[in-house]
Structures are given as C-alpha cells and as structure tokens.
Amino acid sequence: MTVSAIELGATLYMPCTRGDLAAALARAAASGLRSAVLCVEDSVHARDVPAALDNLAAVLPVLGAIPLAVFVRPRSAGMLEHILHLDGIGHAAGFVIPKAHADSLPAYLALPLHEGHRLMPTLETREVCDGHEMRRLRDQLLGQQERILALRIGGNDLLQILGARRSATRTVYDGPLGPLIGTLVATFAPWGFELTAPVMENFANPALLAAEVERDLDHGLCAKTAIHPSQVPVIHAALAVPMAQLAEAQAILGEDSPAVFNSAGVMCEPATHARWARRVMARAEAFGTTGAELKIA
C-alpha cells in the first residue's frame, strides 16, 4: 500500500519483539490506522534483536493482505541490507532511516532498494542542532528526493541529546524543541520536503495531544508519530479540516479568484496562500472536515 506524506496521518510504531505483529496490524488497520512502523531499533533491546528479526521475517509475507502502509525501521544500514533479502520485503512501503545525518545516510542510499520503497529519514542526532550539518543532509536528499516520502522529527532522541524530557502537561512547542522544529521546517520545507511531528509520550491526555497536533499543523508538519493505539483517532480527528478553512482554501484555488480578497476579516492572497490551500485540500480529502461552512465575502 502506498500513501502520500499527508495521508500518513498517525504513524503507529510497533516493536518487532511482538509475536502478534500480523494480528496487531490487521486490527489497527480495521480501526482506521493508515501507516505503521515495525521497529527493530531503539524499542528493541540488543539481546532481543534476533527474535525481533524472526518476527519481522514472519510478518512480511502477509503484509500485502493488510490495507496499511507499513515501514520497517532497522538499526543500521547493515541490518537493512539483510532485511532487503527477506521474503515478502516487497510488501513493505519503505523504511525509516534512524539517526540520519550527512555522514550516515550514504550507506543507506547505496543499498539495492526496491523500486517502490520510500524512505523516511529520522532527524534525531546532535547534527540536527547544527545548521551546516542539516544543509549538508538536505543537499544529499535533494539527489534522492523522489524516494524521500517525509523527514521524521525524533523528539525523544533530541531531548535526550539536550539532557531534557518534555513536560507531561504542555505541548512540545512549549519546551526546547519548539524553536528547533521551526528551524527544521525552514531548512527543509522550502525545498519540497515534508516533515512529520514527534510523538507525545503522554498517551493519557487526549486534549493535550489534540492541541499539539494543531500546533504541528501551524508549523507546516504533515503527520505525527504515535506510540499507543488510543492516540490514532485523536490525531486523525485533529487533522480533519474545519469547513471554514476548507472554504478559504477552495476560494484561494478557484480559477476566478481575485488577486486579494476578504474572508471573515482575514486577507486571502492566492499568490502567497496557494501552497497552504493545496495542503488543506489534501488533508480534507484524507481526514474529512469539521464544523460549519463559511461564506467567503
């Protein structure tokens, strides 16, 4: 199954130490999940790697029967090379590259990936804090842009580097990662890359999660990592587009739209708002709408 970056929605991470991966993926897909990551990296203890790889090998052949975009997260380029030879790997949508930076990425890009495999490099190392290093990475990715589905922001790893942990009562934007996320968007989005938002490890506060997704969208992020199934419907509901916003997007993209017009006291200008409007339209198609319609003046 293939999806666009915006259609990823809540991407649920599952450690490959689970022995019921196929059943868990089927249940999640039936409940509305669109994308998942089978992880053999940080969520798997080193001693459990052989068993995790066995579980992964067992589930790959049946992925084609599950309506879900499933990605695999290896520990290293060497492990990915091994995984690429497993039976059924063609059913995987692609791979999440852990701890991606300009010096680690070439080893992954040199591997014999299948034609349909898409990559999602994860930005989660200290190089993320160095603008020069992120520009080096961007230049490498530009040469492979058709294969890059999105860049994932690894919030917990970045906080570990900073010696911090996010608050259980505030959004990620109210801590040290807020400015860093904005910088990453400014570094990659103007060059056509999509970025996804980091996980909220507190899965007992759906209201806070919904508020954080709203701020993810304000920052131009397109999807969000989830670590618990209960987070998936909350994220998808928060990704739904308010009807008023959809009406603005439709008016901005209209063939007969004026160069500048008023929408409930807010200026709309197709020359500067068209990219935003197209993203809103894509979100509405993927996750639906909420609220009442707005009449554009």
Rank of each mutant, 00 (worst) to 15 (best):
M1H: 14
T2D: 14
V3M: 10
V3N: 08
S4I: 11
A5F: 15
A5H: 13
E7Q: 14
A10G: 10
T11V: 12
T11P: 03
L12M: 06
L12W: 01
M14G: 03
P15G: 13
P15E: 11
T17S: 12
T17K: 02
G19L: 04
A26E: 10
A26Y: 04
A29Y: 04
A30D: 14
S31Q: 15
G32S: 01
R34D: 10
A36M: 05
A36G: 11
A36Q: 06
V37W: 09
V37L: 05
L38N: 00
D42H: 00
V49N: 01
P50N: 01
A58Y: 13
V62A: 10
L63N: 06
A65G: 12
A69H: 07
A69I: 07
A69K: 01
F71S: 08
R73V: 04
R75Q: 11
G78S: 09
G78N: 10
L80H: 03
E81N: 07
E81V: 03
I83T: 02
I89V: 15
G90T: 07
H91W: 10
G94C: 10
G94T: 02
V96K: 03
P98H: 02
P98W: 02
K99Y: 03
A100L: 00
A100W: 00
A100P: 02
L105P: 01
P106Y: 02
L111T: 05
L111E: 05
P112H: 06
L113F: 15
G116L: 03
H117A: 15
P121W: 00
T125S: 11
V128H: 01
V128A: 13
C129R: 12
C129W: 15
D130M: 09
E133F: 09
E133D: 14
E133T: 08
M134P: 07
Q140C: 06
Q140M: 09
L141W: 01
L141E: 00
L142R: 00
Q144G: 00
Q145V: 07
L149P: 05
A150T: 13
L151W: 00
I153N: 04
G154R: 04
G154N: 03
G155W: 03
G155L: 01
A164M: 12
R165W: 06
R165L: 00
A168K: 13
R170C: 12
T171L: 08
V172K: 01
D174W: 01
P176V: 14
P179D: 05
P179W: 04
L180N: 11
A186K: 14
T187Y: 05
A189D: 07
A189Y: 04
F193A: 05
F193P: 07
E194L: 11
E194D: 15
E194G: 12
L195W: 01
T196S: 15
M200E: 15
A210K: 04
V213R: 01
E214H: 08
D218M: 12
D218I: 10
H219G: 04
A223W: 06
K224W: 00
K224H: 07
T225D: 14
H228Y: 10
H228P: 01
V232Q: 06
V232I: 13
V234L: 09
A237M: 08
V241D: 03
P242G: 00
M243P: 09
Q245G: 09
E255M: 10
E255I: 08
N262D: 14
V266S: 10
V266M: 12
E269M: 11
R275F: 07
W276L: 12
R278N: 11
V280Y: 04
A284W: 13
E285N: 10
G288M: 09
G288D: 13
E293R: 06
I296D: 02
